[in-house]
């Protein structure tokens, strides 16, 4: 898919999450609010961010972009701000804009620019944070969000733990299925013929591998 098509795909995903019936349905329950609606908004931005990164290698931006995206995502996961977005349309509007442009976009861009070590670091941290958040939602006896029932909070806790497991399993599978090998091969190839690693190379590969091993001058 061409980059501009991907940007449109991202916009489409965001628009889907903004459709009033969809947003209302997803916000009716805490698990769908956090595990579907927020990822839709950030995910739409991420698709566009990854598309933007194609053919624009800038490995040095990977870490700060990913950090900005993670912090923004973290902010909107604070129970206080989940409640606030439901109570005040202005807060909800700020949240939508920041999830798309300050969370999704930099996450997609940063992921595409990141090398394998940074990616692994991000996955490990994401899994740890998801597990801790899931654990908190499961064990805290009080409701954290005034807008949702305790049973919903428990379901979200379970969902977050499952998601943490999926992230770990995905990373492990990738490692076992030869992700490391492919990287090693790529490095070996580059060592053998340094000129092959031209700046144009990333645009020739797909987005996922475009940023692997952010190139050192």
């Amino acid at each position: 898919m061409r980059a501009d098509r991907k940007a449109w795909l991202g916009a489409g995903i965001v628009a889907l999450g903004l459709l009033p019936p969809v947003a209302d349905l997803l916000q009716a329950r805490l698990p769908t609010h956090v595990l579907v609606l927020l990822p839709l908004l950030a995910g739409g931005g991420a698709v566009a961010g990854a598309a933007l990164a194609r053919g624009r290698p800038a490995g040095w931006t990977a870490a700060p972009s990913l950090l900005a995206g993670a912090a923004t995502l973290g902010f909107w996961l604070i129970p206080r701000w989940i409640d606030a977005a439901l109570a005040a349309p202005a807060v909800a509007a700020v949240r939508t804009a920041s999830l798309v442009f300050l969370a999704g976009l930099p996450l997609g861009w940063g992921w595409a620019q990141a090398g394998p070590v940074l990616r692994l670091f991000v996955l490990a941290n994401a899994a740890a944070m998801l597990a801790v958040m899931g654990w908190i939602e499961l064990v805290v006896p009080a409701r954290l969000c005034n807008s949702y029932l305790l049973a919903d909070q428990r379901n979200l806790g379970l969902g977050l733990l499952v998601l943490a497991g999926v992230v770990v399993a995905g990373a492990a599978l990738r490692a076992l299925a030869g992700g490391d090998q492919a990287d090693a091969t790529e490095r070996a190839t580059r060592r053998a013929s340094p000129r092959m690693a031209s700046p144009q190379e990333p645009s020739a590969t797909n987005t996922i591998t475009a940023g692997i091993g952010s190139r050192k001058p």
């Binding site: 700060p64 950090l67 900005a68 912090a71 902010f75 604070i78 129970p79 206080r80 954290l144 005034n146």
Partner: peptide, 27 residues
């Protein structure tokens, strides 16, 4: 750049939690 983003993120999260004291709308 990472330090700059980390500073901004700490500021944002600090503001959003009343300096690390307020995590729920009840608080």
């Amino acid at each position: 750049a990472t330090l700059a983003v980390a500073g901004a993120a700490a500021g944002m999260l600090g503001w959003g939690t009343g300096g690390g004291r307020v995590f729920t709308s009840e608080m």
